[in-house]
Amino acid sequence: MNPTAPLTTKTNPLLADKPLVIAGPCSAETEAQVLDTCQRLAATGRVNMLRAGIWKPRTKPGLFEGIGTKGLPWLVRARELTGLPVAVEVATAKHVEDCLAFDVDVLWLGARTTVNPFSVQEVAAALRGVDRPVLIKNPLNPDVELWTGAVERLRQVGTGPLGLIHRGFSSYGQTEFRNAPMWHLPIEMKRRFPELPILCDPSHIAGRRELLHGIAQQAADLDFDGLMIEAHQDPDAAWSDAAQQVTPERLAELLAGIVWRRETTDQPDYLSALAQLRERINHLDDEILQLISKRMGVAEQIGRYKKDNSITILQPGRWQEIVDRGVRKGAKLGLSEGFIHRFLDAIHLESIQHQDRVMNE
């Protein structure tokens, strides 16, 4: 990553040279903590923008819920000392008003806000006609329509430039990550809104600092435009999310190890080879679709036999047999178990729909 020149409030901070890196503590705790962390981040030369949580939506009462509005002057002072713009999460109209009063450069909606259309609309109404960049994190649950709806609500009121933040999705049970990446969902948002920059928040996906680099590199490989990542002067002593934060110096080392690749090149050999390989993929996709269509035809025949003999569509034992067989076969072919489950689930649902139509003809 190349160091970028400090931005000012007169420029659009979302249009910084790629990658855009927003960093700072999960929570603003004290003025000394904010200023020390932010100055050390600026000194690395690898951060474009500073962040700190002023208001913290917490799962349970009694946890640290942020220092509140009195922390905003600390960020203003950090901006004065470093020359870097500052970003703050907002969840209510009052948050927006307070941030505008202190001329906060960039606002963002957190996952717990994006999940609630009423909250998004309240923030949007407070931003009507205000030329201020706004970033929108994905909702807690894996729902692209909610994420899309938040973008549309903010566009309707005419704010400044918009951007997206992928911070992972809540999922049931214990997993490797704090929030499941579900990379296909931010990829779908990139397809729907190719003009919007999209950042990755490795801190909230990982939940543990040792996983940050791998997630950040995957985001870079998927052509994300940058990162929002948490750094603290003394991570283990942080008042919130201590396990996922790193020191500014460790963050600089992490960022130095990330390879940011180009989306394309004009090299003739590359373009020619890629075109041939993509054509092969097109042909293979056509064959796959033809085979799936034939499989659905067989499923419809089975549906007719079930209908004639008053047999239910769903056969759990047979379905489990298909899954077990698919996982074993997929492993031999180099396909992950997770992919096999997702693929077969989609096939199974489509088969059920075909059989249901036959049953109810």
Rank of each mutant, 00 (worst) to 15 (best):
Y270K: 10
A219E: 05
L20C: 14
Q217A: 06
F102T: 08
G168I: 00
M182G: 02
L212S: 09
A52P: 09
L255E: 02
I258A: 03
L211I: 07
R153T: 00
T44L: 06
E80T: 00
G45C: 14
M228L: 15
L291V: 12
I229E: 03
L199Q: 04
R208I: 09
V259A: 01
N360M: 10
Q320H: 12
A243F: 08
A331C: 07
E249H: 07
E279V: 07
V123C: 06
I288Q: 07
D345K: 12
E300K: 15
R209Q: 15
K329W: 11
C38E: 05
E253Y: 00
P3F: 01
S351D: 08
R191T: 06
T69P: 07
L289Y: 09
G168D: 02
R278K: 13
L314G: 04
L314F: 09
I198N: 08
R167K: 06
N282R: 15
R77Y: 00
E361C: 13
E176T: 06
I258R: 05
Q218N: 13
R167L: 06
V76F: 11
E195V: 08
W319I: 14
I136V: 15
R250T: 13
H283T: 07
D345G: 13
D234E: 05
A16F: 06
E210H: 15
A243G: 09
H348T: 15
V86P: 06
R79N: 02
R40E: 10
R167F: 09
L50C: 06
I136G: 11
R132Y: 12
A78T: 05
D241E: 02
S119D: 11
V130P: 11
A216H: 04
I347Y: 14
C99P: 02
V246D: 03
A111R: 01
Q267S: 04
E31N: 05
G66M: 03
N12Y: 00
A231M: 01
L72T: 06
D36L: 14
L14A: 00
H354Y: 11
S203C: 00
A101P: 11
E65K: 13
I258G: 03
W319A: 14
G303Y: 09
L196S: 03
G53C: 08
P161K: 00
A111K: 02
C99D: 02
S119L: 08
L185P: 05
E287N: 09
V115E: 15
D324N: 11
A111E: 00
V86N: 01
G71S: 10
S27Y: 12
E89V: 04
D105M: 09
W74F: 07
P161E: 12
S203M: 07
G53L: 05
Q355M: 12
I340K: 07
R191N: 04
D285I: 03
G129S: 11
A273D: 10
A220G: 01
L212F: 12
E361Q: 15
K94W: 03
E253I: 12
N179K: 04
N2E: 09
I302H: 09
G163A: 14
V76D: 13
H213E: 14
G226P: 08
I22P: 05
I136C: 11
Q353S: 14
G334L: 11
N2V: 04
Q301C: 13
F177Q: 01
F64T: 10
